[in-house]
Amino acid sequence: MEIKGEYQIDAPRQAVWEALNDPEMLKKCIPGCESLEKVGDAKFAAKVTAAVGPVRAKFNTSLSLEDLNPPVSYRLVGESKAAAGFGRGSATVELEEQDGGTLLRYDADFKVGGKLAQVGSRLVMGATKKTADQFFSAFSKELDPGAARVDAAVESTAEPSFPWTYVLSGASFVVLLIWWFLLR
């Protein structure tokens, strides 16, 4: 399935780029991120645990960055696995200077499997949006605690719906894709 979105971040492009290069910063902002390590040239591994209601899942994520064009764009390819299922796919991300801040755009194409596929892609979409919003909200605050402002807009090819609990945890994959590809 495909998901696109954009976020306006109140920080200059270079600052955004650098923040996205800071594993500690990312770790702080990714909901449920336990670890984030560089495991090779443009290859990373992360562990993200998400827990909502009765369901908790730990996602092991591996990512590699391609088509690097700092500080403007990337392509990210990755896979995220948990007992509740898996996601794999790729995303392109672009940073654009706009209104004194930075407009981040992403365009991801991914597939989900296991329980994540079973309960319906519509829900993955909704949950993904929520998780992404959480990330960017935290990210924006970390960058400039005094003037946090995030305008989020997500559009997708499927209809958004309310997030179902364990789907939310799976959706972390897409979020990881997004900033991961901002990370060098």
Binding site: K27, K28, C29, P31, E34, A138
Partner: peptide, 11 residues
């Protein structure tokens, strides 16, 4: 909780 702050104990 601020997203991102949840460690294993909190989870």
């Amino acid at each position: 909780t601020r997203p991102g702050a949840a460690g294993p104990e909190e989870l």
